[in-house]
Design a protein around this nucleic acid. Structure first.
Lengths: 129, 129
DNA sequence: CGCATCCTTCCCATTATTGGAAGGATGCGG
DNA sequence: CCGCATCCTTCCAATAATGGGAAGGATGCG
């Protein structure tokens, strides 16, 4: 049983966020002391690391909660998990395309801007067009 | 002089957001009636469209405020604008790379997940590893 | 004149995280 | 065994940008 500080050190999730995950019901400590201290069992630490990784993949906390429930269910079908992963890939694709379009337009505008002491600048001209 | 509703229709910025931009000092109406109604001059509408475009390029409101100030300054050097645009390109690049890395890992995991009724799934296994 | 539609301000919610304050609990050195 | 450092607790607030809604006043038109 680890205190919240120890759990934070071991999982790389800040104590602040661990309390937050507790408050929203995502990962709750197995034990609360009489004084209210949170104590995390190994399985809890595992869940915290799971959450951290899912967040790194860009899953929202809500998606992460679903994945966590699936992970805890030994009998779930892998299809449910796979479809979530593919949906996340599609969301990432859309976001990437959007950012690439922004980037390309900006690069194009910047290439046509002298970037000197004179005021002429197609970037602002385009923004105001 | 357009009322906020007319300004919203003409610029595509919602009345809600126009009020918000006023409250944070980004774009203020040229005139306020005795009753407190906001009235927007052509230059104000221009500024609202400018803001909308800058936001479409992924500039933050703070960056947008700077660009707007540069745009309003007839004597600014184009170098200042160009460096902001290039900084934004760099930020977009970093974000794109990050999303591509997420995407690739997820695709790889999903490819190795059968996605059937059985529980075996490398996606969850990786998340919990 | 009355009703529909607009407008105002103010408050709250979202998403995920971070910050701080005020106060209680624990642990260790002297 | 006392006091201090460090941990912990809860609550409140802020971030960025937008949206939703309530309560109430203003306007416009028939």
């Amino acid at each position: 049983m680890q205190s919240i500080g120890e759990a934070a050190r071991e999982t790389g999730v800040t104590a602040k966020m661990i309390r937050h995950y507790d408050s929203i019901g995502l990962v709750k400590p197995s034990v609360r002391s009489d004084a209210g201290y949170r104590y995390y069992a190994d399985a809890d630490l595992h869940a915290l690391r799971f959450v951290k990784r899912a967040r790194n993949f860009g899953f929202s906390l809500e998606q992460t909660a679903t994945l966590l429930a699936l992970w805890r269910d030994r009998h779930r079908a892998s299809a449910a998990v796979k479809s979530m992963a593919l949906a996340q890939v599609a969301a990432l694709d859309a976001k990437i395309l959007e950012l690439q379009a922004m980037r390309q337009t900006l690069v194009h505008l910047a290439q046509n801007c002298r970037g000197n002491q004179r005021p002429e600048c197609p970037i602002l001209e385009d923004l105001s067009a």
